[in-house]
Design a binder for these strands. Structure first.
Lengths: 265, 265
DNA sequence: TGCATTTTCTGAACATGTTCAACAAACGCC
DNA sequence: GGCGTTTGTTGAACATGTTCAGAAAATGCA
Protein backbone atom coordinates (compact mmCIF):
# COMPACT_ATOMS: atom_id res chain seq x y z
CA UNK A 1 0.00 0.00 0.00
CA UNK A 2 3.07 2.18 0.02
CA UNK A 3 2.00 5.52 -1.33
CA UNK A 4 4.07 7.23 -4.04
CA UNK A 5 7.16 6.58 -1.96
CA UNK A 6 8.49 10.07 -1.94
CA UNK A 7 12.25 9.97 -1.99
CA UNK A 8 12.47 13.41 -0.50
CA UNK A 9 10.28 16.44 -0.25
CA UNK A 10 11.78 17.86 -3.39
CA UNK A 11 10.33 15.42 -5.85
CA UNK A 12 7.05 15.33 -4.05
CA UNK A 13 6.80 19.09 -4.28
CA UNK A 14 7.58 19.01 -7.95
CA UNK A 15 4.85 16.53 -8.54
CA UNK A 16 2.36 18.52 -6.56
CA UNK A 17 3.18 21.58 -8.58
CA UNK A 18 2.00 19.78 -11.66
CA UNK A 19 -0.96 17.91 -10.34
CA UNK A 20 -3.73 19.00 -8.00
CA UNK A 21 -3.47 17.74 -4.42
CA UNK A 22 -5.21 14.54 -5.19
CA UNK A 23 -5.74 13.30 -8.70
CA UNK A 24 -9.42 13.61 -9.37
CA UNK A 25 -9.61 10.49 -11.45
CA UNK A 26 -8.77 7.09 -10.16
CA UNK A 27 -8.50 5.74 -13.64
CA UNK A 28 -5.74 6.96 -15.87
CA UNK A 29 -8.03 8.52 -18.39
CA UNK A 30 -11.70 8.44 -18.92
CA UNK A 31 -12.49 6.63 -22.06
CA UNK A 32 -12.23 9.17 -24.88
CA UNK A 33 -15.29 7.81 -26.60
CA UNK A 34 -13.31 6.57 -29.50
CA UNK A 35 -16.39 4.83 -30.73
CA UNK A 36 -19.17 7.32 -30.33
CA UNK A 37 -22.06 4.99 -29.62
CA UNK A 38 -25.06 5.70 -31.75
CA UNK A 39 -28.49 5.66 -30.20
CA UNK A 40 -29.31 2.47 -32.02
CA UNK A 41 -26.48 0.47 -30.44
CA UNK A 42 -27.10 0.38 -26.72
CA UNK A 43 -24.18 -2.04 -26.42
CA UNK A 44 -21.30 0.30 -27.31
CA UNK A 45 -19.14 -2.43 -28.86
CA UNK A 46 -16.47 -2.89 -26.23
CA UNK A 47 -13.23 -1.35 -27.35
CA UNK A 48 -9.91 -3.10 -27.04
CA UNK A 49 -9.18 -0.67 -24.26
CA UNK A 50 -12.22 -1.70 -22.32
CA UNK A 51 -11.47 -5.35 -22.89
CA UNK A 52 -7.97 -4.95 -21.53
CA UNK A 53 -9.21 -3.08 -18.52
CA UNK A 54 -11.84 -5.63 -17.81
CA UNK A 55 -9.34 -8.43 -18.13
CA UNK A 56 -7.01 -6.70 -15.71
CA UNK A 57 -9.81 -6.05 -13.29
CA UNK A 58 -11.12 -9.60 -13.48
CA UNK A 59 -7.75 -11.15 -12.79
CA UNK A 60 -7.00 -8.65 -10.07
CA UNK A 61 -10.20 -9.34 -8.19
CA UNK A 62 -9.77 -13.06 -8.60
CA UNK A 63 -6.30 -12.81 -7.14
CA UNK A 64 -7.41 -10.48 -4.39
CA UNK A 65 -10.01 -12.93 -3.26
CA UNK A 66 -7.78 -15.90 -3.70
CA UNK A 67 -4.65 -14.72 -1.95
CA UNK A 68 -5.69 -11.54 -0.27
CA UNK A 69 -4.91 -8.00 -1.28
CA UNK A 70 -1.50 -7.65 0.27
CA UNK A 71 -0.21 -10.92 -1.07
CA UNK A 72 -1.22 -10.03 -4.61
CA UNK A 73 1.40 -8.00 -6.40
CA UNK A 74 0.92 -5.77 -9.37
CA UNK A 75 3.34 -8.03 -11.18
CA UNK A 76 1.08 -10.97 -10.47
CA UNK A 77 -1.90 -9.12 -11.83
CA UNK A 78 -0.10 -7.96 -14.93
CA UNK A 79 1.19 -11.45 -15.63
CA UNK A 80 -2.23 -13.00 -15.07
CA UNK A 81 -3.65 -10.57 -17.59
CA UNK A 82 -0.88 -11.27 -20.07
CA UNK A 83 0.53 -7.80 -19.83
CA UNK A 84 3.69 -6.15 -18.68
CA UNK A 85 3.88 -4.30 -15.42
CA UNK A 86 3.92 -0.94 -17.13
CA UNK A 87 0.85 -1.75 -19.16
CA UNK A 88 -1.08 -2.56 -16.04
CA UNK A 89 -0.10 0.80 -14.65
CA UNK A 90 -1.15 2.44 -17.87
CA UNK A 91 -4.70 1.31 -17.28
CA UNK A 92 -4.85 1.55 -13.52
CA UNK A 93 -2.59 4.15 -11.96
CA UNK A 94 -2.31 2.29 -8.70
CA UNK A 95 -3.18 -0.87 -6.92
CA UNK A 96 -5.75 1.06 -4.98
CA UNK A 97 -7.42 2.06 -8.20
CA UNK A 98 -8.02 -1.59 -8.93
CA UNK A 99 -9.74 -1.98 -5.59
CA UNK A 100 -11.84 1.06 -6.21
CA UNK A 101 -12.84 -0.25 -9.59
CA UNK A 102 -14.20 -3.31 -7.91
CA UNK A 103 -15.97 -1.20 -5.39
CA UNK A 104 -17.73 0.71 -8.10
CA UNK A 105 -18.44 -2.22 -10.36
CA UNK A 106 -20.15 -4.18 -7.66
CA UNK A 107 -22.15 -1.38 -6.22
CA UNK A 108 -25.18 -1.99 -8.36
CA UNK A 109 -25.37 -5.68 -7.64
CA UNK A 110 -24.65 -4.86 -4.04
CA UNK A 111 -27.64 -2.60 -3.80
CA UNK A 112 -30.32 -4.23 -5.84
CA UNK A 113 -30.26 -7.47 -3.89
CA UNK A 114 -32.71 -6.47 -1.22
CA UNK A 115 -35.06 -4.47 -3.37
CA UNK A 116 -37.56 -7.25 -3.45
CA UNK A 117 -38.04 -7.86 0.24
CA UNK A 118 -41.58 -7.60 1.56
CA UNK A 119 -43.22 -7.26 4.94
CA UNK A 120 -43.04 -4.52 7.54
CA UNK A 121 -40.39 -1.87 7.84
CA UNK A 122 -38.36 -3.96 10.23
CA UNK A 123 -38.29 -6.93 7.87
CA UNK A 124 -37.51 -4.93 4.81
CA UNK A 125 -34.72 -2.98 6.50
CA UNK A 126 -33.28 -6.19 7.83
CA UNK A 127 -33.28 -7.74 4.40
CA UNK A 128 -31.53 -4.68 3.01
CA UNK A 129 -28.83 -4.60 5.66
CA UNK A 130 -28.14 -8.28 5.64
CA UNK A 131 -27.99 -8.41 1.89
CA UNK A 132 -25.49 -5.61 1.84
CA UNK A 133 -23.27 -7.30 4.35
CA UNK A 134 -23.51 -10.60 2.53
CA UNK A 135 -22.60 -9.10 -0.79
CA UNK A 136 -19.53 -7.57 0.74
CA UNK A 137 -18.47 -10.69 2.56
CA UNK A 138 -16.11 -12.15 -0.03
CA UNK A 139 -14.24 -8.89 -0.23
CA UNK A 140 -14.04 -7.96 3.39
CA UNK A 141 -10.34 -8.65 3.59
CA UNK A 142 -9.89 -6.28 0.72
CA UNK A 143 -12.04 -3.70 2.40
CA UNK A 144 -10.08 -4.09 5.59
CA UNK A 145 -7.00 -3.14 3.67
CA UNK A 146 -8.50 0.14 2.55
CA UNK A 147 -10.83 0.88 5.42
CA UNK A 148 -8.59 3.63 6.66
CA UNK A 149 -9.24 5.51 3.46
CA UNK A 150 -12.96 5.06 3.72
CA UNK A 151 -13.10 7.70 6.42
CA UNK A 152 -10.80 10.19 4.76
CA UNK A 153 -13.07 12.74 3.11
CA UNK A 154 -10.18 13.82 0.92
CA UNK A 155 -9.76 10.39 -0.54
CA UNK A 156 -11.76 9.52 -3.63
CA UNK A 157 -12.24 6.08 -2.19
CA UNK A 158 -13.84 7.46 0.91
CA UNK A 159 -17.42 6.76 1.77
CA UNK A 160 -17.58 10.43 2.70
CA UNK A 161 -16.01 11.83 -0.42
CA UNK A 162 -17.63 13.83 -3.16
CA UNK A 163 -16.76 11.03 -5.55
CA UNK A 164 -18.98 8.69 -3.66
CA UNK A 165 -21.89 11.05 -3.29
CA UNK A 166 -23.88 9.21 -5.88
CA UNK A 167 -23.14 5.93 -4.22
CA UNK A 168 -24.26 7.31 -0.88
CA UNK A 169 -27.44 8.57 -2.45
CA UNK A 170 -28.25 5.19 -3.90
CA UNK A 171 -27.36 3.41 -0.71
CA UNK A 172 -29.89 5.44 1.17
CA UNK A 173 -32.71 5.36 -1.32
CA UNK A 174 -34.12 2.03 -0.31
CA UNK A 175 -34.18 2.60 3.46
CA UNK A 176 -35.73 5.99 2.80
CA UNK A 177 -38.50 4.43 0.74
CA UNK A 178 -39.14 1.85 3.41
CA UNK A 179 -39.38 4.51 6.06
CA UNK A 180 -41.74 6.60 3.99
CA UNK A 181 -43.91 3.57 3.43
CA UNK A 182 -43.94 3.18 7.19
CA UNK A 183 -45.64 6.53 7.42
CA UNK A 184 -42.86 8.76 8.65
CA UNK A 185 -42.86 12.43 7.76
CA UNK A 186 -40.39 13.67 5.21
CA UNK A 187 -38.11 15.27 7.77
CA UNK A 188 -38.08 12.20 9.92
CA UNK A 189 -37.32 10.05 6.93
CA UNK A 190 -34.32 12.18 6.18
CA UNK A 191 -32.89 11.87 9.65
CA UNK A 192 -33.74 8.24 10.19
CA UNK A 193 -32.38 7.17 6.84
CA UNK A 194 -29.19 9.03 7.59
CA UNK A 195 -28.93 7.37 10.95
CA UNK A 196 -29.43 3.99 9.38
CA UNK A 197 -26.70 4.82 6.91
CA UNK A 198 -24.38 5.61 9.77
CA UNK A 199 -25.37 2.35 11.40
CA UNK A 200 -24.53 0.62 8.17
CA UNK A 201 -21.11 2.24 8.08
CA UNK A 202 -20.48 1.24 11.67
CA UNK A 203 -21.54 -2.29 10.94
CA UNK A 204 -19.13 -2.33 8.04
CA UNK A 205 -16.29 -1.30 10.30
CA UNK A 206 -17.00 -4.28 12.48
CA UNK A 207 -17.74 -6.59 9.62
CA UNK A 208 -14.44 -6.40 7.82
CA UNK A 209 -12.76 -7.98 10.80
CA UNK A 210 -15.59 -10.21 11.87
CA UNK A 211 -14.21 -13.71 11.68
CA UNK A 212 -17.27 -15.42 13.11
CA UNK A 213 -18.87 -17.84 10.63
CA UNK A 214 -20.56 -15.83 7.93
CA UNK A 215 -20.01 -12.72 9.94
CA UNK A 216 -22.78 -13.86 12.22
CA UNK A 217 -21.79 -11.50 14.97
CA UNK A 218 -22.22 -8.42 12.87
CA UNK A 219 -25.44 -9.73 11.41
CA UNK A 220 -26.78 -10.21 14.89
CA UNK A 221 -25.74 -6.76 15.92
CA UNK A 222 -27.60 -5.34 12.96
CA UNK A 223 -30.70 -7.25 13.98
CA UNK A 224 -30.41 -6.12 17.55
CA UNK A 225 -29.90 -2.53 16.51
CA UNK A 226 -32.88 -2.58 14.20
CA UNK A 227 -35.02 -4.19 16.86
CA UNK A 228 -34.01 -1.38 19.13
CA UNK A 229 -34.36 1.48 16.71
CA UNK A 230 -37.26 0.69 14.45
CA UNK A 231 -39.95 0.61 17.15
CA UNK A 232 -38.80 4.05 18.22
CA UNK A 233 -39.08 5.64 14.83
CA UNK A 234 -42.61 6.94 15.35
CA UNK A 235 -41.26 9.01 18.23
CA UNK A 236 -39.51 11.12 15.63
CA UNK A 237 -42.86 12.55 14.61
CA UNK A 238 -43.73 13.72 18.11
CA UNK A 239 -42.78 17.21 19.27
CA UNK A 240 -39.97 15.81 21.37
CA UNK A 241 -38.73 13.77 18.45
CA UNK A 242 -38.82 16.71 16.11
CA UNK A 243 -36.77 18.82 18.46
CA UNK A 244 -34.27 16.05 18.97
CA UNK A 245 -34.02 15.39 15.27
CA UNK A 246 -33.47 19.04 14.48
CA UNK A 247 -30.64 19.27 16.94
CA UNK A 248 -28.99 16.11 15.71
CA UNK A 249 -29.18 17.21 12.11
CA UNK A 250 -27.78 20.60 13.02
CA UNK A 251 -24.92 19.07 14.95
CA UNK A 252 -23.97 16.68 12.19
CA UNK A 253 -24.27 19.47 9.70
CA UNK A 254 -21.87 21.65 11.64
CA UNK A 255 -19.50 18.73 11.82
CA UNK A 256 -19.48 18.48 8.06
CA UNK A 257 -21.31 15.19 8.06
CA UNK A 258 -24.05 15.83 5.60
CA UNK A 259 -26.39 12.93 5.67
CA UNK A 260 -27.14 11.69 2.22
CA UNK A 261 -30.35 13.21 0.97
CA UNK A 262 -33.11 10.74 0.30
CA UNK A 263 -34.44 10.86 -3.23
CA UNK A 264 -37.32 13.26 -3.87
CA UNK A 265 -40.86 12.03 -4.08
CA UNK B 1 3.17 0.52 5.34
CA UNK B 2 3.82 -2.42 3.06
CA UNK B 3 3.44 -5.47 5.24
CA UNK B 4 6.08 -8.18 5.19
CA UNK B 5 6.03 -8.12 1.42
CA UNK B 6 5.51 -11.79 0.94
CA UNK B 7 7.27 -12.90 -2.21
CA UNK B 8 5.04 -15.88 -2.48
CA UNK B 9 2.93 -17.96 -0.19
CA UNK B 10 5.78 -20.29 0.47
CA UNK B 11 7.96 -17.99 2.46
CA UNK B 12 5.01 -16.54 4.29
CA UNK B 13 3.93 -20.00 5.32
CA UNK B 14 7.38 -20.84 6.55
CA UNK B 15 7.43 -17.75 8.69
CA UNK B 16 4.04 -18.47 10.13
CA UNK B 17 5.19 -21.93 11.08
CA UNK B 18 7.77 -20.40 13.32
CA UNK B 19 5.87 -17.50 14.78
CA UNK B 20 2.32 -17.27 16.07
CA UNK B 21 -0.19 -15.58 13.79
CA UNK B 22 0.66 -12.15 15.05
CA UNK B 23 3.77 -11.46 17.02
CA UNK B 24 2.65 -10.64 20.50
CA UNK B 25 5.38 -8.13 21.11
CA UNK B 26 5.79 -5.03 19.07
CA UNK B 27 9.28 -4.52 20.32
CA UNK B 28 12.00 -6.95 19.34
CA UNK B 29 12.70 -8.18 22.83
CA UNK B 30 11.70 -7.06 26.22
CA UNK B 31 14.65 -5.74 28.06
CA UNK B 32 16.38 -8.75 29.63
CA UNK B 33 16.94 -6.92 32.88
CA UNK B 34 20.63 -6.90 32.44
CA UNK B 35 20.89 -4.53 35.34
CA UNK B 36 18.59 -5.95 37.93
CA UNK B 37 17.43 -2.76 39.57
CA UNK B 38 17.71 -2.86 43.31
CA UNK B 39 14.90 -1.47 45.42
CA UNK B 40 17.06 1.45 46.39
CA UNK B 41 17.46 2.74 42.83
CA UNK B 42 14.01 3.63 41.60
CA UNK B 43 15.63 5.05 38.45
CA UNK B 44 16.96 1.83 36.90
CA UNK B 45 20.05 3.45 35.40
CA UNK B 46 19.14 3.57 31.74
CA UNK B 47 21.06 0.96 29.82
CA UNK B 48 22.78 1.70 26.55
CA UNK B 49 20.05 -0.31 24.98
CA UNK B 50 17.36 1.91 26.38
CA UNK B 51 19.25 5.00 25.38
CA UNK B 52 19.50 3.82 21.81
CA UNK B 53 15.85 2.98 21.70
CA UNK B 54 14.88 6.29 23.12
CA UNK B 55 17.07 8.09 20.64
CA UNK B 56 15.51 6.19 17.77
CA UNK B 57 12.05 6.87 19.06
CA UNK B 58 12.72 10.57 19.61
CA UNK B 59 14.04 11.09 16.12
CA UNK B 60 11.32 9.02 14.59
CA UNK B 61 8.54 10.99 16.24
CA UNK B 62 10.19 14.26 15.39
CA UNK B 63 10.39 13.23 11.76
CA UNK B 64 6.85 11.85 11.78
CA UNK B 65 5.51 15.16 12.97
CA UNK B 66 7.77 17.18 10.74
CA UNK B 67 7.27 15.41 7.43
CA UNK B 68 4.44 13.04 8.08
CA UNK B 69 4.56 9.32 8.57
CA UNK B 70 4.60 8.22 4.98
CA UNK B 71 7.28 10.65 3.94
CA UNK B 72 9.57 9.50 6.72
CA UNK B 73 11.61 6.47 5.76
CA UNK B 74 13.23 4.01 8.05
CA UNK B 75 16.50 5.04 6.48
CA UNK B 76 15.84 8.62 7.50
CA UNK B 77 15.14 7.56 11.05
CA UNK B 78 18.20 5.38 11.28
CA UNK B 79 20.40 8.11 9.89
CA UNK B 80 18.93 10.71 12.22
CA UNK B 81 19.73 8.45 15.13
CA UNK B 82 23.25 7.81 13.88
CA UNK B 83 22.57 4.17 13.19
CA UNK B 84 22.45 1.86 10.26
CA UNK B 85 19.21 0.66 8.83
CA UNK B 86 19.66 -2.79 10.25
CA UNK B 87 20.32 -1.44 13.71
CA UNK B 88 17.06 0.44 13.64
CA UNK B 89 15.30 -2.76 12.75
CA UNK B 90 17.11 -4.51 15.52
CA UNK B 91 15.43 -2.28 18.05
CA UNK B 92 12.08 -1.79 16.38
CA UNK B 93 10.92 -4.64 14.20
CA UNK B 94 8.84 -2.43 11.97
CA UNK B 95 7.92 1.12 11.23
CA UNK B 96 4.55 0.46 12.81
CA UNK B 97 6.28 -0.52 16.03
CA UNK B 98 7.72 2.95 16.21
CA UNK B 99 4.26 4.43 15.92
CA UNK B 100 2.94 2.15 18.57
CA UNK B 101 5.75 3.07 20.88
CA UNK B 102 4.68 6.67 20.63
CA UNK B 103 1.11 5.71 21.22
CA UNK B 104 2.02 3.99 24.43
CA UNK B 105 4.50 6.54 25.65
CA UNK B 106 2.09 9.40 25.35
CA UNK B 107 -0.90 7.68 26.79
CA UNK B 108 -0.32 8.83 30.34
CA UNK B 109 0.17 12.46 29.45
CA UNK B 110 -2.77 12.13 27.15
CA UNK B 111 -5.06 11.05 29.92
CA UNK B 112 -4.05 13.03 32.93
CA UNK B 113 -4.63 16.38 31.29
CA UNK B 114 -8.27 16.76 32.11
CA UNK B 115 -8.19 15.23 35.57
CA UNK B 116 -8.36 18.60 37.18
CA UNK B 117 -11.45 20.05 35.55
CA UNK B 118 -14.23 21.18 37.86
CA UNK B 119 -17.89 22.04 37.53
CA UNK B 120 -20.87 19.95 36.53
CA UNK B 121 -20.80 16.70 34.67
CA UNK B 122 -21.21 18.42 31.36
CA UNK B 123 -18.25 20.72 31.95
CA UNK B 124 -15.98 18.03 33.26
CA UNK B 125 -16.80 15.64 30.43
CA UNK B 126 -16.23 18.42 27.94
CA UNK B 127 -12.85 19.19 29.44
CA UNK B 128 -11.90 15.55 29.25
CA UNK B 129 -12.94 15.08 25.66
CA UNK B 130 -11.41 18.29 24.41
CA UNK B 131 -8.16 17.65 26.20
CA UNK B 132 -7.91 14.23 24.67
CA UNK B 133 -8.48 15.55 21.20
CA UNK B 134 -6.00 18.36 21.71
CA UNK B 135 -3.31 16.05 22.96
CA UNK B 136 -3.69 13.91 19.89
CA UNK B 137 -3.75 16.81 17.47
CA UNK B 138 -0.06 16.93 16.59
CA UNK B 139 -0.10 13.28 15.72
CA UNK B 140 -3.33 13.03 13.87
CA UNK B 141 -1.62 12.50 10.53
CA UNK B 142 0.21 9.66 12.09
CA UNK B 143 -2.96 8.26 13.50
CA UNK B 144 -4.65 8.59 10.14
CA UNK B 145 -1.97 6.35 8.72
CA UNK B 146 -2.76 3.57 11.15
CA UNK B 147 -6.44 4.16 11.76
CA UNK B 148 -7.34 1.13 9.74
CA UNK B 149 -5.56 -1.00 12.29
CA UNK B 150 -7.31 0.66 15.20
CA UNK B 151 -10.47 -1.25 14.39
CA UNK B 152 -8.84 -4.61 13.82
CA UNK B 153 -9.31 -6.54 17.03
CA UNK B 154 -6.53 -8.88 15.99
CA UNK B 155 -4.01 -6.08 15.73
CA UNK B 156 -2.05 -5.20 18.84
CA UNK B 157 -2.36 -1.58 17.85
CA UNK B 158 -6.11 -1.80 17.83
CA UNK B 159 -8.21 0.15 20.25
CA UNK B 160 -10.23 -3.04 20.60
CA UNK B 161 -7.36 -5.41 21.16
CA UNK B 162 -6.44 -7.26 24.28
CA UNK B 163 -3.17 -5.38 24.28
CA UNK B 164 -4.99 -2.15 24.75
CA UNK B 165 -7.37 -3.34 27.40
CA UNK B 166 -5.50 -1.47 30.10
CA UNK B 167 -5.53 1.65 28.00
CA UNK B 168 -9.25 1.34 27.47
CA UNK B 169 -9.77 0.89 31.15
CA UNK B 170 -7.85 4.01 31.97
CA UNK B 171 -9.55 5.98 29.23
CA UNK B 172 -12.90 5.23 30.73
CA UNK B 173 -12.07 5.77 34.38
CA UNK B 174 -12.47 9.53 34.39
CA UNK B 175 -15.83 9.70 32.58
CA UNK B 176 -17.06 6.94 34.87
CA UNK B 177 -16.08 8.89 37.95
CA UNK B 178 -17.76 12.00 36.63
CA UNK B 179 -20.95 10.11 35.94
CA UNK B 180 -20.95 8.53 39.36
CA UNK B 181 -20.46 11.95 40.90
CA UNK B 182 -23.49 13.02 38.92
CA UNK B 183 -25.53 10.49 40.83
CA UNK B 184 -26.05 7.78 38.28
CA UNK B 185 -26.50 4.21 39.43
CA UNK B 186 -23.66 1.78 38.91
CA UNK B 187 -25.30 0.04 36.00
CA UNK B 188 -26.07 3.28 34.28
CA UNK B 189 -22.54 4.47 34.79
CA UNK B 190 -21.27 1.38 33.10
CA UNK B 191 -23.42 1.85 30.03
CA UNK B 192 -23.06 5.59 29.79
CA UNK B 193 -19.32 5.52 30.20
CA UNK B 194 -19.11 2.91 27.49
CA UNK B 195 -21.26 5.00 25.23
CA UNK B 196 -19.08 8.00 25.82
CA UNK B 197 -16.05 5.90 25.00
CA UNK B 198 -17.66 4.94 21.72
CA UNK B 199 -18.40 8.60 21.08
CA UNK B 200 -14.78 9.32 21.74
CA UNK B 201 -13.70 6.70 19.24
CA UNK B 202 -16.08 8.08 16.67
CA UNK B 203 -14.81 11.58 17.27
CA UNK B 204 -11.30 10.31 16.76
CA UNK B 205 -12.26 8.84 13.41
CA UNK B 206 -13.43 12.24 12.31
CA UNK B 207 -10.63 14.10 13.99
CA UNK B 208 -7.72 12.53 12.20
CA UNK B 209 -8.95 14.01 8.96
CA UNK B 210 -10.39 17.19 10.35
CA UNK B 211 -8.48 19.96 8.63
CA UNK B 212 -10.50 22.80 10.12
CA UNK B 213 -8.36 25.09 12.30
CA UNK B 214 -7.50 23.26 15.47
CA UNK B 215 -9.94 20.56 14.56
CA UNK B 216 -12.71 22.95 15.47
CA UNK B 217 -15.33 20.95 13.67
CA UNK B 218 -14.75 17.83 15.68
CA UNK B 219 -14.56 19.82 18.90
CA UNK B 220 -17.91 21.35 18.11
CA UNK B 221 -19.41 17.99 17.34
CA UNK B 222 -18.23 16.73 20.70
CA UNK B 223 -19.86 19.70 22.39
CA UNK B 224 -23.08 19.21 20.50
CA UNK B 225 -23.12 15.53 21.29
CA UNK B 226 -22.53 16.11 24.96
CA UNK B 227 -25.19 18.79 25.06
CA UNK B 228 -27.52 16.28 23.57
CA UNK B 229 -26.59 13.28 25.64
CA UNK B 230 -25.76 14.53 29.10
CA UNK B 231 -29.19 15.97 29.91
CA UNK B 232 -30.67 12.61 29.03
CA UNK B 233 -28.48 10.59 31.32
CA UNK B 234 -30.93 10.61 34.24
CA UNK B 235 -33.39 8.81 32.00
CA UNK B 236 -31.13 5.79 32.28
CA UNK B 237 -32.25 5.35 35.85
CA UNK B 238 -35.92 5.20 34.99
CA UNK B 239 -37.61 1.87 34.24
CA UNK B 240 -37.64 2.68 30.55
CA UNK B 241 -33.99 3.60 30.65
CA UNK B 242 -33.03 0.46 32.50
CA UNK B 243 -34.75 -1.70 29.95
CA UNK B 244 -33.14 0.15 27.09
CA UNK B 245 -29.73 -0.01 28.70
CA UNK B 246 -30.01 -3.72 29.33
CA UNK B 247 -30.89 -4.38 25.73
CA UNK B 248 -28.08 -2.22 24.41
CA UNK B 249 -25.51 -3.85 26.63
CA UNK B 250 -26.76 -7.28 25.64
CA UNK B 251 -26.58 -6.41 21.97
CA UNK B 252 -23.07 -5.03 22.18
CA UNK B 253 -22.04 -8.00 24.22
CA UNK B 254 -23.32 -10.42 21.62
CA UNK B 255 -21.44 -8.44 19.02
CA UNK B 256 -18.23 -8.95 20.92
CA UNK B 257 -17.96 -5.28 21.81
CA UNK B 258 -17.35 -5.46 25.50
CA UNK B 259 -17.53 -2.00 26.89
CA UNK B 260 -14.58 -1.24 29.10
CA UNK B 261 -15.49 -1.82 32.68
CA UNK B 262 -15.37 1.22 34.90
CA UNK B 263 -13.06 0.89 37.88
CA UNK B 264 -14.61 -0.52 41.04
CA UNK B 265 -15.62 1.74 43.86
C1' DT C 1 44.03 -11.80 30.84
C1' DG C 2 41.95 -14.82 27.47
C1' DC C 3 37.99 -16.82 25.60
C1' DA C 4 33.11 -17.96 24.80
C1' DT C 5 28.68 -16.02 24.64
C1' DT C 6 25.47 -12.57 24.04
C1' DT C 7 24.14 -8.13 22.33
C1' DT C 8 24.46 -4.66 18.92
C1' DC C 9 25.39 -3.18 14.48
C1' DT C 10 26.36 -3.23 9.43
C1' DG C 11 25.45 -3.22 4.64
C1' DA C 12 23.96 -5.91 1.00
C1' DA C 13 20.00 -8.19 -0.82
C1' DC C 14 15.06 -8.87 -1.77
C1' DA C 15 10.23 -8.02 -3.15
C1' DT C 16 7.24 -4.49 -3.90
C1' DG C 17 4.65 -0.23 -5.67
C1' DT C 18 5.45 3.20 -8.87
C1' DT C 19 7.61 6.02 -12.70
C1' DC C 20 9.62 6.81 -17.08
C1' DA C 21 11.78 7.06 -21.56
C1' DA C 22 11.45 4.70 -25.47
C1' DC C 23 9.13 1.83 -28.68
C1' DA C 24 5.08 -0.38 -31.22
C1' DA C 25 0.35 -0.48 -32.80
C1' DA C 26 -3.82 1.63 -34.12
C1' DC C 27 -6.12 5.43 -35.86
C1' DG C 28 -7.46 9.64 -38.57
C1' DC C 29 -6.84 12.05 -42.39
C1' DC C 30 -4.78 13.19 -46.94
C1' DG D 1 -1.16 3.91 -49.46
C1' DG D 2 1.45 7.36 -46.46
C1' DC D 3 2.11 9.96 -42.36
C1' DG D 4 1.53 12.34 -38.07
C1' DT D 5 -0.87 11.68 -33.74
C1' DT D 6 -2.87 9.29 -30.26
C1' DT D 7 -3.04 5.00 -27.62
C1' DG D 8 -0.96 1.00 -25.75
C1' DT D 9 3.06 -1.50 -24.19
C1' DT D 10 7.61 -2.63 -22.55
C1' DG D 11 11.25 -3.34 -19.30
C1' DA D 12 14.54 -1.00 -16.72
C1' DA D 13 15.10 2.00 -12.86
C1' DC D 14 13.94 3.97 -8.34
C1' DA D 15 12.73 4.39 -3.36
C1' DT D 16 10.97 1.84 0.20
C1' DG D 17 10.05 -1.65 4.06
C1' DT D 18 12.07 -5.68 5.60
C1' DT D 19 15.40 -9.64 6.15
C1' DC D 20 19.76 -11.77 6.79
C1' DA D 21 24.45 -13.46 7.21
C1' DG D 22 28.00 -12.10 9.34
C1' DA D 23 31.21 -8.47 11.69
C1' DA D 24 32.04 -5.71 15.89
C1' DA D 25 31.42 -4.63 20.51
C1' DA D 26 30.09 -5.62 25.10
C1' DT D 27 29.73 -8.92 28.70
C1' DG D 28 30.61 -12.83 31.69
C1' DC D 29 33.57 -16.09 33.40
C1' DA D 30 37.84 -19.06 33.95
Amino acid sequence: MTRPASPRARRKAERKARKPERPAALESRTTPSRTTPSRTTPEPAETKRDATRRRLLDRALALFQQRGVEATTMRDIARAAGLSLGAAYYHFPSKDALMFAYYEANQAELESAAERATGGARERLGADFHAKLDSVRPYRRMLAAIIGRLIDPGDPLSALSAHQRAVRGRAIALPARILRDAGLSTDSVRLAAGALWLLEMAALLLYVHDESPGGARTHRLVDDALDLVVPMLPVLDTPFGRDLAARVVAALDRAGISLPAPPPG
